[in-house]
Each structure stands twice: as C-alpha cells, then as structure tokens.
Simulated assay, not measured.
Amino acid sequence: MKGKEWYQADDVAQEYDSKRFSRGGRLIDHREKRAVLDALGPVEDKDVLEIACGTGRFTVMLAERGANIVGLDISRAMMTQGREKARRAGVEDHIEFLRGDAARLPFPDDHFDAVFAMRFFHLADTPAKFLAEMARVSKELVFFDTFNDTSARVAYNWLLPMGSRLYGDEEVHELLDAAGLTLAGVRNDFVLPYGFYRKIPNGVAGAFREADTSFGETSLGERLASVSYWRATVGERSD
C-alpha cells in the first residue's frame, strides 16, 4: 500500500481528522458519511466490515445506528483514535477494531452483510486482490470510492506526500467483473478537489460546494468529477 509507513505514524493519526475535516473539509466529511449511509441503508443488527477504518469516522457512525461492525486497519495509532471515539460515543460493545491485511482478510466466506472501504483504493497497490477479498467475505453488498483519472486531481497528484492511484471507469468495471461483483450504482462528485476545500473556511466553502454540485450534475461535470462512489452486489457463488 502506498504511504504505509507515513500512514502508521502516531503524529499522522493524531492530526488526521483535524487536518482533513476541519474548515471546508467538513463538507467532505458530511458528503462521505452520507454516501456510506445511502449505500448501506438500514444497518441495525447487521454485520458490517469496514476496510481501512482509520480513526473510526464511519465505524462509530454505523455503530451508533445499531450495526455490529468490525473496523480493520494496518495502523495501531489510527485505531487508538477510533477506540477513543467509540468510548466517547458509548458504542464500544458494537465495534471490534482489528489490525490486519486487507489482501488476506481473516474471515470466512459470506461472513458480513456488507463490506465497505472509503479513502482506501487510491492507495491500493493490488486493487484486484483487495476487491476480491471484500467480495469473498460479503453476503450482499460491497461499497467503495475511487479518485478519478479525468479529474483535476491529476494536476496536483504529484504534490501529495504519497501520490494517489487514479482510476478510469473501464478499469473499475474490470475490477468488479473479476471480483464477481455486479454494479448496482455509481455516483460521481466533487469537481473541485478535496484539497481545495481544506484550504478555505467552512462558511466560504458552502458557496463553492453549491456551484460544484450544480456543475457536477452536467455531462461535463460528471466526466470531471474527482471521486466516484461504487455500490456493488455479490453474485451467487459456485459450489
């Protein structure tokens, strides 16, 4: 995985949320959480796995809605932040944080009702292997996001500390086919890249977000979107 050492550092974990989801980044946090909720639907009493759970933004949110959720990550420091969030929210009994490798998930086939990953596939060195594992352990649903190779992210990708893997639609469709998944829906968003929103105050970001959303609904905006949210269903397995 790209940036593996950087991602596991204590100081990165401690500042992760404040650097990415303060100021205009609050809009990103809100949109990503909405995307997860829309994709997974009602989660009460469902078994859910989050790949690359990080500081537990989504893990805790779903536990608060009644999910029995496992958050898997490679970073102990990130999961320490997640456990503290779970403690403050009073949902420790609904969450298990587990350190592990997303390419070799320690679960049997069809173990979870839904499996999802956010902010993960842009770092993936072997996306086919990761997606195949997500499909293997899910009974019903797989959800993930990608950063897109026709977006403004291309222009500043080289400035990022670990770069990003960018995807085209054709590549994602091939990955889904190889994993035995059927595309159930895709949503494109954020013509303006995430880095732009993190640099401006939240009050100012709202106006840009409105314009971004309006343009994003056009055919050109769809092609220039920075991020895509992919919802897929698991097909019947052969004996």
Rank of each mutant, 00 (worst) to 15 (best):
D145A: 11
D109Y: 08
N148Q: 07
V142D: 01
F143L: 14
A117R: 03
D145I: 12
S138F: 00
N148T: 12
R136N: 04
H122K: 15
D125N: 14
F112E: 01
E133F: 08
K129P: 01
D113K: 03
V137K: 00
F130L: 11
A114R: 00
R119W: 02
M134D: 00
M162D: 13
L141N: 09
P161F: 04
F144A: 05
N148Y: 01
D145M: 12
T150I: 08
L123F: 01
F120I: 14
R153H: 06
L160M: 11
D113W: 00
L141Q: 05
T126D: 06
K139Q: 08
F143Q: 11
F112D: 01
M134H: 03
N157W: 01
T150M: 05
V115L: 08
M134I: 03
L131R: 08
V154S: 05
D109V: 15
L123M: 12
T146W: 00
E140Y: 00
H122Y: 05
T126L: 10
L141T: 08
F147T: 14
L160T: 04
A128G: 12
N148E: 04
F130S: 07
K129I: 04
N157S: 12
V142A: 02
F143E: 07
A155H: 05
A152Y: 13
D109N: 12
L123I: 10
F121Q: 07
T146Y: 02
F144W: 10
A132C: 06
H122I: 10
Y156D: 14
L123D: 06
D125R: 15
R136E: 01
A132L: 10
D113C: 11
A152G: 13
G163R: 07
V137N: 00
A114D: 04
T146G: 04
K129T: 04
F121V: 09
A124H: 00
F144C: 05
M162P: 15
D125K: 15
F112K: 05
T150E: 06
N157C: 13
V142Y: 00
R119A: 14
F120H: 11
F121A: 10
L123S: 10
R136V: 04
T126N: 10
E133K: 07
A117S: 11
E140S: 09
D145H: 09
S151W: 02
S138V: 06
L141D: 07
A155D: 04
R136D: 03
A114L: 07
